[in-house]
Simulated scan of single mutants.
Amino acid sequence: MSGEGAPRIEPIDGKGLRVAVVAASWHQRVMDGLLTGAHRALREAEVGEVTELRVPGSWELPVAARAATSGHDAVVALGVVIRGGTPHFEYVCQGVTQGLAQLAVDSGVPVGFGLLTCDTEQQALDRAGLPGSQEDKGHEAVTAALSTVVALRGLTGARG
């Protein structure tokens, strides 16, 4: 599993933070798990304000995440793309990944990357944070985004 070697992140104080969760709608069972994990992480961190925005598919995540950067301290993008028999998988995964990365760099707003790019539905289920799943990528995406907000605030505070 890809979770091997993951850093141990201390609990995050999210009080007063505003976070947007942008989630695709395809593969409902997987998305339900990702969203549950994301919302659990937000509750654990006691995030002050959470906005959830649903979009049709993963392709729409970058544009929706861009809109969500305004007024939010972090954005978390959740989606799943499962390989099929055409090159569509590669185009969608590459476009979404590049779009979200560029958004984070250009906006300076941390973007939690919760896009599952799997060969099979079982791989997606194993990462969705559902009962029996081996990983919880929704929770991890929120934790990464919140940790980055805290790190960036520390950098800004060190200068000021």
Rank of each mutant, 00 (worst) to 15 (best):
G95A: 06
S107N: 07
E121N: 04
Q28R: 14
V22K: 01
T97Q: 02
L115K: 02
C118G: 10
R54K: 13
R54L: 15
G108Y: 08
D119G: 15
K137H: 12
A20C: 07
V21H: 04
C118R: 03
G84T: 08
L103N: 09
P87D: 05
G84Q: 07
L152M: 14
H139Q: 01
P56A: 15
L42C: 01
I12H: 05
Q94W: 00
A77K: 00
G71W: 10
A68E: 14
L35I: 09
V76D: 02
C93Q: 00
S58I: 05
K15N: 15
A124K: 03
H27L: 12
M31R: 02
G71R: 03
A104P: 04
S70I: 14
V92E: 00
G85I: 07
L116R: 05
E90I: 02
L61K: 02
A141G: 04
Q94A: 10
C93I: 03
A101E: 03
G112E: 08
L152W: 10
L100T: 12
R54T: 15
Y91T: 05
T97H: 01
S147E: 13
V75T: 08
D73G: 13
Y91P: 00
V109R: 02
T143I: 15
H88N: 10
H39G: 03
A67V: 15
V149S: 11
L61Q: 06
A67D: 13
E44F: 01
